[in-house]
Design a protein around this nucleic acid. Structure first.
Length: 637
DNA sequence: GAGTTTGAAACT
DNA sequence: CAGTTTCAAACTC
């Protein structure tokens, strides 16, 4: 391993700012950083200073640290995570006021009501509540890299005895076993001033070794992490593009998608963002790995974040490319070449490994590229340019693709506002599906029953945005367009005709038109659901797609099938959902225009209500919490 | 593991 | 926008 050169802005310099770090094993470890890592760390540190991120050490008031309470570890984690979100939230060692390390980052949360509550009686504490409070407290802090790793901790010396300085942005503790580092906790270690540097680090190591893995094995922690690790594992993500413009904490938030109740284990997900390259240098997965798992990679590389949950004040950070380390469960055994893939998982993008040969992993053919992540060694790709070292190229290509299709890198699956089931042609409710694929599929032969189908692969039902044929998606069929129904009906008519011919032995003077489907017949076919009968007056009008003419999804779909299609993509899905509730809308612009009109009709001016009731089944579903409001729409129709 | 099938992406 | 080609994943044997 080459020794990085210190440029004065590097992590090394950062670590050296601590008196204790100068001779510490951490600084030794700094010298063992690869140039790339060192460069990233350097950029990160530099960005921190440039962007006025507080580099002041985190100081936790020692009275709140009870190292004798083994179970308090999780609470320390909570604090650590919360503090990491707050990055720079400092507590005075002697009083309850936060140290003014960076005024704008200071919060009202004081040690007494924050740290103390968390540590005082962790066994009795309601972790969910605490976590929620912690997260809430942390999220109040803007502009800060929300995560850092336990490996980012160094200890320093402070004037006040018994206090511990946690310095962020330093380096990995070399003493910690990898598996312990993976526990991903910012461990707070109480050391005394008279201890030597090595003793301190040893103590940290000892503490970590003895406590981290043990104490993170709380039920809820393990429950979550077993699932998350199996599904998501540990990945190393690097954010593309400078996210300095998006300094909000969410941009650096590496929490997974769980709610506050599961925030305790989640907070172990830490990341250090290199703001210059927008790279997450080190991320440690949220918690614990079984002791029997030996990880094949350097703990330095261990990282993750769940990019799907990133948000920047509600907005997705535009570019979230990520470089990641393989999942141990799935990727460890992977080798170049064929392997089992887990392209989609329920809550994350899973472990994507590509096998690209010609695309150089710079096209959407490449699932890694499409997912916004860098390829990794376990990918079987050839001539891969989807690597951090080609970041500029990747970004250029990405921009070009986004110019063509702004939604190209949007999440493939769009969650629906409510968890309403799709409705099959026969009116039966299909598997409830809370999400739809953003583009929809165009399957012709797979019947949307194989992973060729993007919807099926994403475990979502097909939507009206799909152009699939003979959809049998087990997660939810799409409604059949009228032209297909008409086609079927014509076929049926021809069959009838032929049957009649056979039966009668002759047919005279008649044409097939005599047996062409009437609109009434089309209504019967295109409105297979009970709802349709209640609106049987609403003959599907292909020429006047008024709200009143299209009372349900089938009719809306009928219009679509008649050539009045919505545009594809996410907008389509959202708009489609909107249109289904509205009754029908023939195109996006009409939908947009009619939204306000419908709000006027409904009288409450709440367009979100439309989204909440995007499925027509809600209209007639008794007991639906939205029934009253929706039924008013139905009555209007 | 090789070959085939499939459908999305890219291209025209 | 539709048709064709390219591509890589999914699938089959």
């Amino acid at each position: 391993m080459e020794s990085p050169k210190s440029d004065g802005n590097s992590v090394e310099a950062c670590a050296a700012s601590s008196p204790s770090a100068q001779k510490s094993p951490f600084s030794k470890f700094l010298n063992n950083l690869s140039p790339i890592k060192s460069a990233r760390a350097s950029r990160y540190t530099q960005r921190l200073s440039e962007s006025s991120f507080p580099t002041t050490p985190l100081v936790f008031s020692s009275p709140h640290l009870d190292l004798h309470q083994e179970t308090s570890f999780l609470k320390r984690e909570e604090i650590a995570a919360s503090s990491s979100q707050a990055h720079g939230k400092c507590y005075s060692p002697s009083n309850s006021a936060p140290i003014p390390c960076n005024q704008k980052h200071l919060q009202s949360c004081s040690p007494s009501d924050f740290v103390g509550e968390c540590l005082a009686d962790p066994l009795k504490a309601d972790r969910a509540q605490n976590a929620e409070r912690l997260v809430q407290s942390a999220t109040d802090v803007p502009l800060l890299p929300s995560c850092f790793t336990a490996s980012e901790v160094t200890i320093g010396k402070v004037d006040v005895t018994n206090d511990v300085i946690i310095e962020v942005g330093a380096q990995t503790l070399p003493h910690l076993a990898k598996k312990h580092l993976l526990s991903g906790s910012l461990c707070l270690v109480q050391v005394s001033d008279d201890q030597s540097i090595d003793e301190r680090s040893d103590k940290i190591s000892e503490f970590s070794s003895e406590n981290i893995c043990d104490h993170v094995e709380s039920d809820d922690f393990l429950e979550h992490n077993e699932a998350s690790q199996h599904q998501r594992g540990i990945r190393r993500h690097l954010q593309f593009e400078a996210t300095l413009d998006c300094k909000c904490d969410a941009a650096f938030n590496c929490h997974t998608s769980s709610g506050p109740g599961t925030a305790v284990p989640e907070v172990g997900d830490h990341v250090v963002i290199d703001h210059q390259s927008s790279e997450a240098v080190v991320v440690v997965n949220g918690g614990h790995l079984p002791d029997n798992i030996e990880l094949p990679w350097d703990s330095q590389k261990v990282s993750c974040f769940d990019q799907q949950t990133l948000s920047c004040n509600g907005k997705m950070p535009g570019q979230q490319f990520a470089d990641r380390v393989e999942e141990p469960s799935q990727c460890q055994d992977s080798s170049k070449g064929k392997r089992q893939r887990e392209t989609y998982t329920d809550e994350s993008e899973g472990c994507k490994l590509c096998n690209c040969k010609r695309s150089k992993c710079l096209k959407l053919y490449c699932e890694c590229f499409a997912a916004g992540i860098y390829c990794v060694d376990y990918c079987a790709c050839e001539n891969c340019f989807n690597k951090p070292e080609y970041e500029d190229t990747v970004l250029d290509i990405r921009q070009q693709i986004e110019l063509r299709n702004p939604l190209a890198f949007a999440p493939a699956v769009v969650k629906q506002a409510n968890d309403s089931p799709n409705v099959a042609d026969d009116g039966n409710s299909m598997t409830p599906s809370s999400a739809r694929h953003k583009r929809g599929c165009k399957c012709k032969r797979s019947k949307c029953l194989k992973k060729y189908c993007e919807c099926f692969r994403a475990k979502v039902g097909c939507s009206d945005g799909c152009r699939c044929e003979d959809c049998e998606n087990s997660f939810g069929k799409k409604s059949e367009p009228i032209f297909q129904r008409e086609k079927k009906l014509k076929n049926l008519s021809h069959e009838k005709l032929n049957t009649a011919e056979i039966m009668s032995g002759s047919i005279k003077g008649g044409t097939a038109n005599q047996f062409s489907p009437t609109w009434e017949e089309l209504v019967d076919i295109s409105h297979p659901t009970p709802l349709s009968h209640s609106h049987s007056r609403a003959v599907p009008s292909l020429t006047s797609p008024n709200l009143g003419d299209c009372p349900n999804d089938s009719q809306a779909q009928s219009q679509k099938g008649s050539g009045l299609q919505l545009s594809p993509g996410y907008l389509h899905w959202c708009s489609s959902a909107l249109s289904r509730t509205q009754g029908c809308v023939s195109n996006v612009s009409r939908e947009l225009d009619s939204t306000s009109a419908l709000c006027d009709i409904m009288g409450d001016g709440s367009p979100e209500i439309l989204m909440e009731n995007s499925n027509p089944t809600n209209i007639v579903k008794a007991g639906s919490p939205n029934q009253k409001r929706v039924s008013s729409t139905a009555s209007i129709i």
